[in-house]
Design a binder for these strands. Structure first.
Length: 380
DNA sequence: ATGTGC
């Protein structure tokens, strides 16, 4: 057998993960493969990196001259929004809410008017506006578990006794349609930054990012309506996007695929639906990590594997309650198995890696109270 | 991930 010839690589590859963080070999291979794409300058794997569809999830990839829509994937604009809910945690009506909350159908209100209020043009996917979607998306009520940095916590207007709400969702069919238009013509090929197709993609991409943010806002409003409360958005960050940004002295196309920004203030890094979420403050200059952070715990088992293993060990019913005594509303049995806590890496290790790499400071930990996934779609 | 594929 001939020894393999290393392909020329102009990108620096860095994985931000301690030896105690388990990273799948396939994820590393994917990161090294995309690092060889023309124009690529810096490929960073965050501690939640895991294999995706051709490109790793949990990565920040900076290229010069070309941009690559497939690196962002179909859920353009997906992200995490945190709300402070006008409600004391001790007043949570867990059983009542778990019985009645339903966010699955189209919103009854005027979606176009809601978008207009957020400064977003309609996109033709408004029946899905205000819906969580599938996969790892969720809307979760939380309580404060511990405060590590009281000053930053208070500066965000947060209080220990209040309910918080974390929304993880994206642009639903809009991002999917945007990627498909590109892939139908170019496949996994990149776009020269000065091409008409690049401009067309970026315009739709930016629209999907704005639409995704508005979607999280409407999900939050529906959830708060459902529990008879109001609230205030504390933060909202996108972890699937491509933007023009200076990285290490070069003006690059910074692709974030399952990578939270470290240059937009505090972010929440959630664990699984049966784990703590971490409110963290980015620290340091950030260019060595492409101005990015982990966006979650990261998968340990792929979906098929998780379904098989969890089916053997647990009933669906048992997975609707967590070790935090929280409820999980997920009436799609397969999804419940796919998203079960053992399918994910431990979030504390992921966050510790970020702390030890000098990228974040922990502000607080948040515990789940009620997770909304879906009322329908049960495939049994 | 997807108004979801054969």
């Amino acid at each position: 057998m001939t020894s393999p010839t290393p392909a020329p690589s102009s990108a620096r590859v860095r994985i931000v993960a301690s030896s105690q963080s388990w990273v799948e070999g396939e994820a590393v291979r994917q990161l090294e493969a995309v690092a060889r794409l023309p124009g690529m300058r810096l490929a960073v794997g965050l501690p939640d990196i895991h294999p995706g569809k051709g490109a790793p999830v949990g990565a920040a990839l900076a290229s010069e001259g070309f941009l690559y829509p497939f690196l962002v994937g179909n859920d353009i604009g997906c992200g995490m929004g945190l709300w402070d809910v006008e409600l004391a945690a001790r007043k949570a009506k867990l059983e009542r809410w778990a019985a009645k909350l339903n966010l699955d159908g189209p919103w009854e209100g005027n979606a176009e008017a809601f978008l207009a209020d957020q400064g977003v043009e309609p996109a033709g996917f408004e029946l899905a506006l205000g819906t969580v979607g599938g996969g790892n998306h969720f809307a979760e009520l939380q309580r404060v578990d511990s405060v590590h940095d009281a000053e930053v916590f208070a500066s965000l207007g947060l209080r220990e006794d209040r309910v918080l709400m974390l929304i993880h969702s994206g642009s639903r069919g809009l991002g999917e349609a945007t990627l498909r238009t590109h892939v139908d013509k170019h496949g996994a090929g990149g776009l020269p930054e000065d091409s008409d197709d690049a401009r067309r993609y970026l315009k739709r991409h930016d629209h999907a990012v704005a639409w995704g943010r508005a979607n999280r806002a409407l999900i939050a409003q529906r959830m708060m309506d459902g529990i008879g409360s109001t609230g205030r958005r504390v933060l909202d960050v996108c972890h699937n996007s491509v933007i023009s940004r200076e990285v290490d002295g070069c003006t690059c196309w910074l692709h974030r695929k399952g990578a939270a920004p470290s240059d937009q203030g505090p972010v929440v890094i959630p664990g699984s639906r049966g784990a703590l979420s971490y409110l963290v403050l980015p620290v340091g200059e950030g260019s060595a990590s492409a101005h990015s952070l982990a966006h979650g715990a990261g998968r340990k088992w792929n979906r098929t594997h998780a379904r098989e293993r969890m089916r053997e060990r647990f009933t669906a019913e048992s997975l609707t309650r967590t070790s935090f005594k929280s409820h999980v509303i997920c009436e799609d049995r397969d999804l419940l198995f796919e998203e079960a806590p053992p399918a994910y890496k431990p979030i504390d290790r992921v966050v510790t890696d970020l702390v030890e790499a000098g990228l974040v400071r922990v502000v607080a930990t948040l515990a789940p109270v009620l997770t909304y996934k879906t009322r329908g779609g049960a495939r049994d």
